[in-house]
Design a binder for these strands. Structure first.
Length: 826
RNA sequence: GGGCGAGUGGCGGAAUUGGUAUACGCGACGGACUUAAAAUCCGUUGGCUGUAAUGGCCUUGAGGGUUCAAGUCCCUCCUCGCCCACCA
């Protein structure tokens, strides 16, 4: 009998699959289509890790399952090649990013192939290939033509280490998410995409797709839509004489307007110049200086509520009260109007500021005594009765009072309804070499002019040095013969844009390219876009929720508006896989030396199939869970047991005829069909761990049955084992392919279809019913399936243990749950 | 501070609409095979108790509640994880 050895069979089948193009997706095929997308990797120098392996294993299981079910499955893969790590690697090792990328991609390719992924490699895309980024540039020009891309000199997040601008999404806790350097502010002329114009659409679109609520909620929170009132305040002197200037504040708490006792303005705001009194200019100026010298994180961490009185006043439009205006760092320039009404009665930050600067506190909502200490930082923000607001507002519910106050101000003029977003426009320029050149030519006469379509792609020129410059300009600036060009509009000398796109550009539309990866005429043929339509399932990391996932939805919605894609949303369903932690439950990291490499596990002799199985068996797909090195041994053992049982059957098959033991047959069929039912249901809900458990259970059953009856019921055994192999095929494809062949099939198992279960095999002649007394299990009885309630009740009552337990009590009520249990209430 | 989620054996984790808690796997222990080890196979494995059996009691973070019946529903609290965060 031959033994299971993954080292012999895995490379063999990988080669056969490749040679036969076994997993090619077919355009316009009659079968229903299914697009199974996993995020494509950034080909770093370290190779694939457990996170990749988990994601691609899940994707492959689903792709293979759908294929078995008769779908025309597109399971593509590509490489997201542009980005800083490669550029930094290139600088350090004095190689070109192109060369480094090539090496890394080859390594990734090899490692992914060793997992046995059923990817259609013929469609793979490479974002740094000019044939690909030609279309990224082309799409950028569509944004530009539609007024969705613009240039502005703004204070951007600047990473002093990487010497590049960053989007808000790339700044985590005031640090650059890639290199952990403290982010500074820097004034630079930048290309910006108007993602804010799609804020509402990006929220509304979530209704049409199947995303887990934590992903949808996170996007909604990130967009941060809030509806409130914009109030206009007239600037005045301390006596209430108006200066003629005014400004606006935004609030979601209209009911607190009567309790506003001060105004705070962001130190950066130009508003201050019109409001501050000349004799306060010195103090305000030095405060502004102090604040602007702080990094983002210093400012965030400074909760001291520093600030200065600017010597100016404003008049409360509700009650004409004259209140002081301050400049304070806790007000953000970028959100709302950069000015905030201080309502220390019911806002914690305003209270803290009021306490520090001796400003009176007024309450507008009644609350328990706890909350009425004006020196306390215990602030009531709940609902209650309106107070201190005069007639007719006092005594109303505070929210209702707020609405009426707002209406009064609207009709009088100084208030208007306003919607604010936390989402900012997307800073799209990077001052780096290793990215798509932005296809724009700057002409003295015509300004920014799009590079004509026929001249795309604007190819990255070879350069000697990739280091970013200290001036904040891209290294491309020094390639003069690349920069110097002519204006497409007037033909006069002009300069090409030297900023490149962020690494999120190429990944914003890559899934569309898989539909038509080799098209030289269009980014994709509309007919193929129609055929493949939406991505049916998109698997990826939770960390991309407010980055790549949001960006690509934005691009797609824009393309839909341009009539370039047939669907509003790119991804019909999205799931995020959990993280595999190190054995000790901490994050795997190189510095801790606790990284488990999937390639090492495969090489150790367990093979890819056992690895895939153990990853899928470890925990529910979306759960963070520690790696258990012993679990591969367990799944390997399971494969080996299935292998051995099949070999034993094949060896015995010729020796024994079919003895047609109907009872043994029924047992075999029941065990296997129960597994078919469970595994099929679990695959639909991505419950991979229980799908595998069900197969293990069935195998344990089969071993027991073999010990009892041997292999005499040949037909049942053959059918049972074939079905077991079909069930394991999506999880352990090489293993299944090999066994399938040994059982005697010539065609690949991926053409064998998915088994259907037959309910008739699942019906048992007898069933056990739990017998409870007052809800506690006291015994169990075995009755014929389908026995009526009366039979079961009397069977239970004649059970010796129940007779014992019931002795001396009166049964008041009997509850019978069909097929499950019976409960006597005494 | 806001949003989302979780707490079940030594460990990873199971448990349809409330209906026999601890499936499956790992580990551990005992045994078979072996000169020995690995591998493989068989058995035991929530806790306490000890009348050793068709036994009793307890057990899903803590406490209360609803119910014939609660890991599951409700209330109060504790702990942990993730994301966002001076967003008015």
């Amino acid at each position: 009998m031959n033994r299971y050895n993954p080292k012999n069979i895995e490379p063999k089948w990988q080669q056969i699959w490749t040679e036969n193009h076994a997993f090619a997706a077919i355009d316009y095929d009659d079968r229903p289509k299914y697009v199974m997308l996993t995020e494509f990797p950034y080909p770093s120098g370290t190779g694939i890790h457990m996170g990749h392996t988990r994601e691609y294993t899940y994707g492959d299981i689903m792709a293979r399952h759908k294929r078995a079910q008769g779908y025309n499955v597109l399971f593509p893969m590509g490489y997201d090649e542009f980005g800083l790590p490669t550029e930094n690697y290139a600088i350090k090792n004095k190689v070109s990013p192109q060369a480094a990328t090539q090496v890394n991609v080859a390594n990734f390719q090899k490692q992914m192939e060793s997992l046995g992924l059923s990817v259609d490699w013929s469609r793979s895309v490479h974002t740094s290939d000019p044939e690909y980024y030609k279309w990224t540039q082309w799409l950028f020009l569509k944004f530009y033509a539609a007024g969705m891309a613009y240039q502005d000199e703004i204070a951007i997040n600047w990473c002093p280490h990487c010497k590049t601008g960053l989007s808000n999404e790339e700044v985590i806790n005031g640090r650059h998410e890639r290199c952990d350097t403290l982010v500074e502010k820097k004034l630079l002329k930048q290309w910006i995409l108007r993602i804010t114009k799609y804020a509402d659409r990006l929220i509304a679109g979530l209704k049409d797709v199947d995303y887990p609520s934590r992903i949808a909620d996170q996007q909604i929170n990130w967009i941060g839509r809030s509806k409130g009132a914009e109030i206009t305040w007239k600037v005045c002197d301390r006596n209430g004489d108006e200066t003629g200037d005014s400004f606006e504040t935004f609030t979601t708490r209209k009911d607190t307007i009567p309790g506003v006792t001060f105004i705070v303005i962001a130190p950066e705001s130009a508003l201050l110049d019109t409001i501050m009194a000349p004799d306060h200019a010195g103090r305000v100026g030095s405060y502004r200086q102090t604040v602007s010298s702080m990094t983002d994180i210093e400012r965030q961490e400074d909760k001291s509520k520093s600030g200065v009185f600017v010597g100016g006043y404003a008049k409360n439009p509700f009650n004409d009260q004259v209140i002081p205006v301050y400049a304070a760092s806790y007000v953000l320039a970028g959100y709302g109007t950069g000015a905030v009404m201080g309502m220390p009665g019911h806002d914690l930050r305003d209270r803290e500021f009021a306490i520090k600067h001796d400003i009176p506190v007024v309450f507008t909502t009644s609350a328990s005594a706890d909350y009425q200490d004006t020196a306390s930082t215990h602030v009531y923000t709940g609902s209650g009765t309106q107070i201190n607001s005069g007639e007719p507002y006092d005594g109303l519910a505070n929210r209702a009072a707020g609405d009426q106050i707002f209406e009064k101000l609207v009709s009088a003029g100084p208030a208007v309804e306003k919607i604010n977003y936390k989402l900012r426009d997307w800073v799209f320029s990077r001052q780096h070499y290793w990215g798509e050149p932005i296809p724009i030519i700057h002409c003295l006469e015509h300004g920014a002019v799009a590079v004509p379509e026929a001249q795309l792609p604007v190819v990255l020129p070879p350069v000697d040095h990739y280091e970013p410059t200290d001036t904040g300009e891209s290294p491309l600036v020094s390639i003069r013969d690349w920069v110097e060009t002519t204006c497409p509009a007037c033909g006069k000398p002009a300069e090409g844009e030297t900023d490149t796109m962020p690494n999120w550009a190429g990944s914003s539309w890559y899934y569309l390219r898989y539909f038509d990866a080799r098209n030289n005429e269009q980014f994709a043929d509309p007919k193929k876009l129609d055929y493949w339509g939406q991505v049916d399932m998109y698997l990826g990391g939770m960390e991309h929720t407010t980055l790549h996932l949001l960006y690509s939805r934005f691009w797609h919605e824009f393309l839909y508006d341009q009539g370039m894609v047939p669907t509003k949303e790119p991804y019909a369903a999205r799931r995020g896989q959990g993280i595999i932690q190190a054995v000790d439950g901490t994050k795997m990291s190189k510095s801790k030396g606790n990284v488990i490499s999937p390639t090492d596990v495969i090489a150790s002799g367990y093979g890819a199939d056992a690895l895939r199985l153990s990853i899928a068996f470890l925990a529910p797909y979306d759960q963070t869970t520690p790696w258990n090195p012993e679990s591969v041994a367990g799944t390997h053992r399971f494969l080996q047991r299935l292998w051995t049982l099949t070999q034993e059957f094949l060896d015995s098959e010729t020796l024994v005829g079919n003895l047609d033991d109907t009872e043994a047959q029924a047992d075999i069929m029941r065990a296997v069909h129960a597994a078919i039912k469970k595994v099929s249901a679990d695959l639909d809900t991505m419950s991979f761990n229980t799908a595998i458990a069900a197969q293990m259970e069935a195998l344990n059953q089969l071993y027991k049955l073999k010990d009892q009856d041997g292999f005499a019921s040949v037909n049942a055994w053959r059918s049972g084992l074939e079905n077991m192999v079909k069930l394991i095929a999506p999880f352990a494809p090489h293993f299944a392919e090999e066994l399938w062949q040994q059982i005697g099939h010539e065609q690949s198992i991926h053409l064998a279809g998915w088994p259907a279960y037959d309910e008739q095999y699942l019906v048992m002649a007898e069933q056990t019913i739990g017998v409870q007394i007052n809800g506690k299990i006291r015994s169990e009885i075995t009755v014929a399936t389908g026995a009526d309630e009366q039979t079961i009740v009397s069977a239970a009552q004649s059970d010796p243990r129940i007779i014992d337990s019931l002795a001396g009590s009166i049964v008041r009520k009997t509850i019978y749950v069909p097929g499950k249990l019976i409960n006597f209430v005494v």
